[in-house]
């Protein structure tokens, strides 16, 4: 089981590391796909969020799917502690109630904006590609042909999420000069 995991991880990572050398356009989506679930270990949800230690982490996509099968492949078999990761592709914002991670590829779209609005104060890690103030808690940014991110700590705190300092250290806005 472990070796399968490792093989899968290796496959995904090879894709992700390959992104550095190749043109960002083609590889941007797969890298973001892996980053989506890789964010999960560095985030702590309020204790009441999960009913049991084995309850899966629900990763929701709203307002488009730039990944396709890549995301499903990337999360398949991945475990965060004892939790598996399941991907839900949502059509409407009101469906976002059970999501732990909510990815909004186009946050300015009305549905996404509504979802962001409704997620405010709820234990949901919102992820967008919008680095300005209109974005979510984690926002992917392209910098030097690499996918980086910013983190809105205040928004995270308002949602009751604790984000690991390790992750915060990597965030662009928390690192001077980058």
């Amino acid at each position: 089981m472990l070796w399968v995991l490792r093989m899968l991880g290796a496959a995904v990572l090879s894709v992700s590391t390959g992104a550095a050398a190749c043109a960002a356009g083609s590889l941007e989506a797969p890298v973001k796909a892996t980053y989506l679930y890789k964010l999960v270990p560095f985030v702590e949800w309020p204790a009441a969020t999960f009913a049991s230690p084995t309850q899966p982490v629900v990763l929701c996509l709203l307002g488009g799917d730039p990944f396709g099968a890549v995301l499903d492949q990337a999360v398949r078999g991945q475990k965060i502690g004892a939790r598996a990761i399941v991907v839900h592709r949502l059509a409407r914002a009101e469906k976002a109630a059970g999501c732990h991670v909510l990815y909004l590829p186009a946050p300015r779209a009305p549905a996404a904006a509504e979802a962001l609005q409704s997620a405010h104060g709820a234990p949901v890690l919102t992820v967008t590609d919008q680095a300005d103030g209109a974005g979510g808690i984690v926002n992917f940014v392209l910098r030097d042909n690499r996918v980086r991110f910013t983190i809105n700590s205040r928004a995270a705190a308002e949602n009751g999420l604790t984000i690991s300092s390790k992750l915060l250290n990597l965030a662009l806005d928390s690192r001077a000069g980058r």
Binding site: A20, R148, F149, K166, L167, N169, L170
Partner: peptide, 14 residues
Amino acid sequence: ATVTAALAFDDRPA
């Protein structure tokens, strides 16, 4: 322990 995030997000400078 310190390098986990950097590895996870392939942040070589970090």
